[in-house]
Design a protein around this nucleic acid. Structure first.
Lengths: 218, 218
DNA sequence: AATTTGTTAGGTGTTTTTACCTAATGTCCT
DNA sequence: AGGACATTAGGTAAAAACACCTAACAAATT
């Protein structure tokens, strides 16, 4: 394996510099460059394509998800290792789907980063426990979606006002707070809520939030 | 100035290791040790007092605020440089009040960390723009209201039982129904629910369902 | 041996939701 | 002109959620 070029994208300077030193200490690495957001990274990749990118997700201007999508579309040979703080399975699954090559938590060991770099170059992918979990969960979710394809045609659609109220409910506001926000009586909001519940055949708040998610309202 | 001992407390392994390398590259530093939370740090300090601690705020088990308070009370000679992601002035002011010696953002330059270390050893304090701003703001706020001790402890993940209860909540069951289903008291379920709400920082049912969706629990 | 953590369960009281009513507007449609 | 519907608002009352406690017990950890 010839010596590698690695780019690091992260908004925290100290993390970036620290990672930079770590990566430079890996024998296989020839050059390391840094970007502090997705946009900057994209400009750098346009100039010169690295072998591997260590990509943070939380970044201003352009986040890691958007940057990953764009880079994979334009430069399919660049391997992307996503670094994240949290392991929300949904996100991991999404990133894997759009073609990220590895997924590491920020509290991984430096050794694991090294392994991941070697693996994405050699095998195009680095599989660890986090990824396996996410794929399993994702596969189950997909299967569920196919099975439980609900029919919404019968349910009366929500009116604009009702949608508005439902959205505010989904922001964890009480009826009173929503009334204040919309300059309406608390009673009116309660009334709207009751109608929504009937229309959606919901037993309680949970049913409302679930509908909002599944209908794409939030 | 004789050679210094520096401890680094941060829950993210990669950040910690990277910082460790950075700090070791500073000429004045002799020894660097790492802790992954406040509790571990406290144990290490008890064994041997360092000259300087680089302290992250967001940590599980014991956060940086609590650790700073305890260390300053017991070991007044140890200098503490707080590293944080966000520059919420109230928090900075609070930390300065309890005796932290410097406050840096995680997107500071490595050079600034070096300067801060030198300064806290020499002058007991490192003053930068962030601190000046916070002191100014804090002085104003103090007259308005009492200071509140900020909490940076990361939300503990849900236990198995809590996950189980949350999943049943997301099936639109009431606490009573969940109690019957699991052969437990309704009170116990209410108790679980309350704990979950605290952990997830939810105001009501909505917050629970949203977490369940976003974490892939449903 | 002592401490912490998870799980269980209860008490007490307030707030919010939920159910089931009535009823006054205004708009749109046929 | 009359009817259907959306929007507003109110009353009453029960059910559920939410807050803030105490406390016991087992398992794991220090």
């Amino acid at each position: 394996m010839s010596k590698l070029t690695v780019y690091i994208a992260d908004d925290q300077t100290l993390f970036r510099k620290g990672m930079s030193r770590l990566v430079k200490s890996f024998g296989q690495v020839k050059e390391v460059k840094e970007a502090e957001n997705g946009k900057e990274l994209l400009a750098m990749v346009k100039e010169q394509q690295p072998d591997v990118i260590l990509m943070d997700l939380e970044m201003p201007v352009m986040d890691g998800v958007e940057a990953t999508e764009k880079i994979i579309a334009k430069y399919p040979d660049v391997k992307i290792i996503v670094l994240s703080m949290h392991d929300t399975q949904q996100h991991i699954f999404y990133l894997m789907e759009i073609g990220a090559h590895a997924f590491l938590l920020k509290n991984a060991e430096p050794e694991e980063v090294k392994e991941a770099i070697v693996s994405v170059i050699k095998h195009d992918f680095y599989q660890n426990q986090i990824v396996i979990e996410a794929l399993r969960k994702g596969a189950i979710d997909q299967r569920k979606q196919k099975q439980v394809r609900p029919i919404f045609q019968e349910t009366a659609p929500l009116t604009d006002r009702e949608k508005e109220v439902l959205q505010l409910i989904c922001r964890e506001l009480t009826m009173k707070e929503i009334g204040d926000k919309l300059a309406l009586s608390e009673k009116t909001i309660q009334n709207h809520r009751a109608r929504i519940m009937v229309k959606l055949n919901a037993r309680n708040t949970v049913g409302l939030v679930k509908y909002a998610y599944e209908s794409g309202l939030i």
